Simulated scan of single mutants.
Amino acid sequence: MEEANRHKWIESQKAGYDLGESCIREWVAKHWQGYLRARWVEHLQGKCFWVELDRGDFGLLQREFHDCKPLLDAILDQLAAGKENLHVILWAMDTGQPIEQVLRILEALDINSIRLRHQFETRE
Rank of each mutant, 00 (worst) to 15 (best):
residue 23 C to W: 03
residue 6 R to Q: 13
residue 48 C to I: 12
residue 108 A to F: 01
residue 89 I to D: 08
residue 75 I to S: 00
residue 40 W to R: 15
residue 115 R to I: 03
residue 8 K to T: 12
residue 63 R to I: 00
residue 2 E to R: 15
residue 20 G to V: 10
residue 29 A to I: 06
residue 26 E to W: 11
residue 31 H to P: 07
residue 89 I to R: 13
residue 100 E to K: 08
residue 1 M to Y: 03
residue 15 A to D: 01
residue 53 L to R: 03
residue 120 F to S: 02
residue 27 W to D: 09
residue 48 C to F: 10
residue 65 F to I: 01
residue 53 L to Y: 09
residue 120 F to D: 00
residue 40 W to Q: 14
residue 45 Q to P: 02
residue 99 I to P: 02
residue 20 G to I: 07
residue 90 L to E: 15
residue 120 F to I: 11
residue 99 I to N: 04
residue 49 F to M: 05
residue 25 R to E: 07
residue 84 E to R: 12
residue 2 E to G: 15
residue 6 R to M: 08
residue 26 E to C: 12
residue 89 I to E: 13
residue 46 G to C: 08
residue 56 G to E: 07
residue 89 I to H: 06
residue 9 W to Y: 14
residue 74 A to N: 08
residue 77 D to Q: 09
residue 103 L to S: 12
residue 118 H to R: 08
residue 98 P to N: 06
residue 112 N to V: 10
residue 47 K to F: 05
residue 30 K to G: 06
residue 124 E to A: 13
residue 123 R to D: 15
residue 29 A to M: 08
residue 113 S to G: 06
residue 100 E to V: 05
residue 10 I to P: 04
residue 19 L to P: 06
residue 48 C to H: 12
residue 35 Y to W: 15
residue 82 G to R: 10
residue 44 L to N: 01
residue 84 E to P: 02
residue 103 L to M: 13
residue 102 V to I: 02
residue 124 E to D: 13
residue 22 S to C: 11
residue 124 E to H: 14
residue 28 V to E: 12
residue 44 L to P: 02
residue 101 Q to K: 13
residue 91 W to E: 05
residue 65 F to S: 00
residue 8 K to M: 14
residue 26 E to S: 14
residue 34 G to D: 14
residue 106 L to G: 11
residue 57 D to E: 04
residue 75 I to F: 01
residue 33 Q to W: 09
residue 85 N to K: 13
residue 73 D to P: 01
residue 13 Q to P: 02
residue 71 L to Y: 07
residue 77 D to K: 06
residue 62 Q to E: 04
residue 59 G to T: 00
residue 89 I to K: 14
residue 97 Q to L: 05
residue 59 G to Y: 00
residue 46 G to M: 09
residue 104 R to I: 04
residue 75 I to Y: 00
residue 82 G to Y: 09
residue 94 D to N: 14
residue 54 D to W: 01
residue 99 I to M: 13
residue 102 V to Q: 03
residue 85 N to C: 11
residue 92 A to W: 08
residue 6 R to H: 13
residue 41 V to F: 06
residue 95 T to E: 09
residue 112 N to K: 13
residue 105 I to A: 02
residue 71 L to D: 05
residue 32 W to V: 07
residue 70 P to Q: 06
residue 70 P to A: 11
residue 79 L to M: 10
residue 90 L to S: 11
residue 54 D to G: 01
residue 105 I to S: 02
residue 50 W to C: 09
residue 18 D to G: 07
residue 99 I to G: 00
residue 12 S to L: 05
residue 57 D to H: 04
residue 106 L to W: 10
residue 85 N to A: 12
residue 60 L to D: 00
residue 32 W to L: 12
residue 74 A to F: 01
residue 18 D to E: 08
residue 68 C to P: 00
residue 3 E to F: 14
residue 109 L to D: 07
residue 10 I to R: 12
residue 79 L to Q: 06
residue 10 I to Q: 11
residue 30 K to L: 15
residue 83 K to P: 02
residue 122 T to G: 05
residue 95 T to H: 13
residue 48 C to P: 00
residue 88 V to N: 03
residue 51 V to I: 09
residue 84 E to F: 06
residue 22 S to P: 02
